[in-house]
Amino acid sequence: MRLATFLHRGVEHGGVVRGPLVHPLAGGLTVLDVVRAGLADPELLPGVPLREVRLLAPLHPPAFRDFVAFEEHVEGVRRAVDGVGGVPEAWYDAPAFYFTNPHTLIGPDADVPFPASSVARDFELEVAAVVGPSGSIFGYTIFNDWSARDLQSREMRVNLGPAKGKDFAGSLGPWIVTAGELERHRDAAGFLALTCTASVNGAEVGRDLLSHMGWTFETLLAYAARDSHVAPGDVLGSGTVGNGGCLAELWGRRGRQDPPPLQDGDVVTLTVEGIGSLTNRIVTAPPAAPLPPFRRSVERQP
């Protein structure tokens, strides 16, 4: 089953995609309702041609944890940042993640508004798992974790993790494929052997297997829930695949910004076997108002 959220004649619907049609969910149910209930066969209304609708992010998740589960990505990006590279030993201890912004998720074919102050603009090719009831994984979709690398590099020196270098946008879609549909791709170690590719303006720049993750999605979910709470509808990002899953990794390996950072008008397409493709275009957001300067302690003394 493929679950989508879409606009048709100005009204937002949840629905099930079957071939060239998307069938709205009966009773006004949303995709999040279906996920929370674990519905395997929801009641549907007559289908609408996909060409007549606008696909949105497939659901509005309560929370979004994004992991870093690919060793090759960690090594390449660290080389781009500090020129040395390598993977910290602590990375192997447990699957690290950060909380990203569920309120700025966009869907297929939407423009991505990068901060005007950023010039090192990047994409990140990921697969995201959607959590179902009782600690299960309901399904999978594609995630593009857009990154303003220059903003991210500055704020990471504070040692709190990414913030404004990430929270302006994330792309999710085109739909959620239920877990059972992808079971045939699971290898003997429990990983999904799905081919993942990334292209910029039609030219492929990255290709990897999802099964090169260091931990399975089931392990990511178990770790997220440890001493905490994960709710149905929460989303877990795999982290960026290796071998060109983002530009920064390639910059680190090549010692230069090749390919160049994304610019206005560039079109990025991420494709994952068994799920589909997710395409977005880069634009620049309006400039932000400048921050007032920090008031240092000497200025606060009476």
Rank of each mutant, 00 (worst) to 15 (best):
G180N: 13
P42W: 02
F191Q: 12
D234K: 12
P290E: 02
S211C: 07
L44H: 11
I275P: 10
S199I: 00
G83I: 09
L262Y: 00
G161V: 02
G135I: 10
Y92W: 12
P293C: 09
E299Y: 09
F97C: 11
D122F: 03
A179M: 08
E43H: 10
V272Y: 10
G15N: 04
L236D: 11
D109Y: 09
D150G: 10
P58K: 04
Q257Y: 03
F294I: 08
L50R: 13
S134C: 11
R300P: 01
R157L: 15
R207W: 03
T219C: 07
S277Y: 00
V272M: 04
S136Y: 09
F64Y: 15
G244L: 02
V283L: 05
H185A: 15
H212S: 14
I106T: 07
G139L: 07
G135E: 12
S118F: 01
C246A: 06
E75W: 05
L7M: 12
Y92N: 04
R281V: 00
R184T: 13
I275C: 12
R121H: 00
V235E: 05
S171Y: 03
L192H: 14
F168L: 02
T271Y: 06
A4H: 03
L39A: 15
S228N: 15
M213V: 00
F168C: 03
H103M: 13
T5C: 11
A120Q: 13
S118E: 04
A188S: 15
G233S: 06
L59Q: 12
A285D: 09
F143Y: 14
G47L: 11
V235A: 13
P46R: 06
S147F: 03
D227V: 14
R2W: 08
T30V: 04
L172S: 06
A225P: 05
D266Y: 02
D122L: 05
A288E: 15
E72R: 14
V81E: 14
E12T: 12
L21Y: 14
G237M: 09
R121P: 01
A96V: 12
L59F: 02
G107F: 02
P95A: 06
V11F: 07
A189K: 14
F97V: 01
V87W: 05
P62M: 09
A163R: 06
L7V: 13
G83P: 08
L151F: 07
D66F: 09
Y140T: 07
